[in-house]
């Protein structure tokens, strides 16, 4: 949408993507600054916004390298005319919120490793870890060096799923930070993961509401997960009912993605989709075509892990004096009815 704010000559209009100046004068330049300015003197130490100029018969256009930010004042300067403009935030603008957190259990083991935070829309990844803190519920104080900050935030490609690591050096037995500071989470204590309201979405609009997730810490989990514990709730043949797998364990949300496959006895892959619902301790598989009576194999990747980073192949911090055992990566099931 192009809004017109001034009707005098030259005629100035703007949108998120570009500025247009209609004029009969021979103008060569549009300069745009972030902020509100009324004279050239005020701009002495300011840099103009980067962008491209384009000219046609009646107008000169300026396209900024980034679309103009919402709810932000800009000043465009054409010769000695100053035009102030702002793209308002729509009243029904849906603000960023946290759609889900994995795991969302009220109890976590002391060697817990990571959360996945699902946002309702793409989040601003710049310095995102500065907005996230872990609070000790008793002292009400921030737990120092609790979360691993990274310059390149661990965000899924759609910008909506953030991986949040508990400082791994403190969670691994015998590493310096673990020896000197101990584990981040102490058994018996309660904590709150806090994501502050100032966190913005990719368009620069703040969440406006602080997110809190409280939990209590139980003993450490140093038992390798096993798919032998999984129980299958079988679908009927000639239907597209989901195959439901009860995990009977708190498994890691991320590691289950792209880690599962169902094949038939001919080795053909059954096409369909997995729904990873670790917060309900289940996985569902919905086939694209109806189930056929017969035998199937669920194949699992060894990287599937529990919430403490122990995977099907090894413990997160493996005791090298103990013998390795071969991981079980396949489960058979039959659809008979």
């Amino acid at each position: 949408m192009t809004l017109e704010v001034y009707s005098q000559s030259p005629k100035f209009s703007f949108s998120k993507e570009f500025i247009e100046v209609k004029t009969s004068e021979n103008i060569q330049e549009i300069k745009v600054y972030k902020g509100s300015f009324t004279s050239h003197e005020q701009l002495a130490n300011k840099e103009a916004i980067l962008g491209d100029l384009f000219k046609d018969e009646s107008s000169l256009y300026f396209t900024p390298v980034l679309p103009f930010q919402l709810n932000t004042t800009y000043t465009a300067i054409v010769n000695d005319s100053f035009f102030e403009f702002l793209i308002p935030l729509k009243t029904d603008y849906k603000k960023l919120r946290i759609a889900a957190i994995y795991p969302n259990t009220s109890k976590l083991p002391s060697n817990f490793l990571k959360w996945y935070v699902a946002f309702s829309k793409p989040v601003n990844s710049a310095n995102i870890y500065n907005h996230i803190t872990l609070i000790n519920n008793k002292t009400k104080e921030k737990v120092d060096r609790a979360l691993l900050p990274l310059e390149n935030a661990l965000l899924s490609n759609d910008g909506k799923l953030l991986t949040l690591w508990i400082e791994p050096g403190r969670q691994k037995r015998d590493l310096g930070p673990n020896k000197h500071l101990g584990e981040v989470l102490n058994e018996g204590a309660s904590y709150t993961l806090l994501i502050d309201e100032k966190l913005k979405d990719k368009y620069g609009v703040a969440m406006g509401k602080t997110f809190e997730h409280s939990f209590r810490v139980i003993g450490s989990d140093r038992i390798q997960p096993s798919i032998k514990k999984w129980e299958f709730v079988l679908p009927k043949s000639n239907t597209n009912q989901p195959l439901v797998i009860q995990l009977n364990d708190n498994l890691d949300f991320g590691s289950l993605h792209n880690s599962l496959q169902i094949i038939n006895t001919k080795g053909q892959v059954i096409s369909g989709s997995f729904r990873i619902k670790t917060n309900e301790n289940i996985i569902e598989f919905v086939p694209n075509t109806s189930w056929i009576k017969g035998n199937y194999i669920l194949k699992c990747d060894k990287i599937i892990e529990d919430v403490s980073g122990n995977n099907l192949e090894r413990l997160f911090d493996r005791d090298i004096t103990k013998k390795k055992t071969k991981p079980i990566l396949e489960r058979k099931f039959s659809i008979l009815r």
């Binding site: 990274l150 390149n152 661990l154 490609n157 993605h257 792209n258 599962l260 496959q261 369909g272 060894k302």
Partner: peptide, 16 residues
């Protein structure tokens, strides 16, 4: 990942 679910969400990513 050895076993791939091609219809899975594009969740797994690598941060260089």
């Amino acid at each position: 990942a050895d076993a791939k679910d091609r219809r899975g969400r594009p969740l797994r990513s690598l941060a260089i």
